[in-house]
């Protein structure tokens, strides 16, 4: 009896040790991939890279609840590491405006030189950003705009309308003037201005070649919502020629739905530009033939601009002495032909 118990105990111990090892190794597995975004960002390779005055930058962004947002923070941190004269203070990513405001207040108390801020809600963060500007801190607003021009020195924005135009233009080029093609669209969160801009750009570009959006559904930027919206869309439209999906994170779900429905008669275009979508485009064995980039390096650019502004440098390739007030990033189309150029800067969703 006692040997039986003993054996059982030993068996349990082995199982326990194995389970523990699995958990520990599993937990480590992810963190070792953490460096993948380092290749996303680079120095300027100009005189601006020369070490100057020490710059302390505070950085705050929403919670990394999907791939693109996670990549934003990773790229910002990686960018700051490349410059020895930058000290970056990263606040915990949060979707709680009350907390994000207090993070900015802490940066003000710390008398940082610059704050790079991707607000959860641009309007809600305006007053505290204004306070920081009043305290003499350089504020760089990223992606979601404040509602006052006094609240930021420089704003870095993605081009949402341009994304729609790029996707629509790709469809027009590919259709080569053929009429009557069926175009479908899976949008992101429909009430957000950025989604409305993307859809507007898409519709405007399609109109130029006589096409229109025949079927449109909206998801919520998550894999789950993408799967749901796409399943419904595929039910509703028995034959599609072109499908534009606004967001590659929700695109994981969209592709799952397409696979489940055994559909492959159309060409799909993605949005945002995640690494797995680019790998699919490169492999050229799915319906995915292109994606439109919404740069996940916006905050990294914010870090670089903050450094230039504090050190009193200018953007070396412009004749202008001052750093511009606003930068709107381009939204290029990635296809099999140029995917190698962009895959380095893609984010893992």
């Amino acid at each position: 009896m006692s040997t039986f118990l003993h054996r059982r105990r030993r068996g349990l111990a082995i199982v326990g040790a194995f389970a523990a090892a699995t958990l520990v190794l599993g937990a480590c597995g992810n963190s070792s991939d953490g460096g993948d975004s380092d290749s996303n960002v680079s120095k300027s390779n100009t005189d601006n890279d020369k070490a100057g005055k020490k710059v302390v930058i505070g950085f705050s962004a929403p919670a990394a609840d999907h791939g693109w947002m996670g990549a934003i923070t990773k790229a910002a941190v990686a960018q700051a590491k490349q410059y020895d004269d930058i000290t970056l203070k990263v606040a915990e990513g949060t979707n709680d405006v009350n907390l994000q405001i207090s993070q900015v207040e802490t940066f003000i108390n710390d008398k940082v030189d610059a704050i790079v801020l991707l607000p959860f809600d641009g309007a809600a963060m305006t007053s505290v950003a204004r306070k920081a500007m009043d305290a003499g801190i350089v504020v760089i607003n990223v992606d979601r705009e404040f509602d006052s021009p006094f609240a930021a020195r420089t704003t870095v924005l993605g081009d949402n309308y341009g994304m729609g135009v790029s996707a629509g233009t790709f469809v027009c080029d590919d259709a080569k003037g053929a009429k009557g093609k069926v175009v479908a669209e899976i949008a992101g969160i429909d009430s957000l201005p950025l989604t409305q801009d993307r859809s507007q750009g898409f519709a405007d570009a399609l109109k130029k070649c006589g096409l229109k959006v025949n079927n449109r559904v909206a998801a919520e930027f998550t894999v789950e919502s993408g799967e749901k919206a796409a399943s419904n869309l595929l039910q509703a439209a028995p034959k599609i020629d072109y499908l534009w999906n606004h967001d590659d994170d929700q695109g994981v779900g969209v592709l799952a739905a397409i696979k489940n429905a055994n559909r492959d008669e159309f060409t799909m275009i993605g949005g945002a530009g995640s690494a797995n979508v680019m790998r699919d485009i490169k492999a050229d064995n799915t319906v995915l033939k292109a994606t439109v980039i919404y740069p996940s390096t916006q905050a990294a650019d914010g870090i670089k601009l903050a450094r230039l502004l504090v050190q009193g440098k200018s953007m070396s390739d412009l004749s202008e002495i001052e750093v511009p007030r606003q930068l709107k990033l381009s939204a290029p189309v990635v296809t099999k032909d140029n995917v190698d150029t962009y895959i380095k800067s893609a984010f893992e969703s």
């Binding site: 979707n95 709680d96 405006v97 009350n98 809600d121 309007a123 809600a124």
Partner: peptide, 16 residues
């Protein structure tokens, strides 16, 4: 209090 802190009202306020 949150309205004064953010100068806004929003359906996302007070999440969690």
């Amino acid at each position: 209090m949150l309205m004064s802190r953010t100068t806004t009202g929003s359906s996302t306020h007070g999440t969690g």
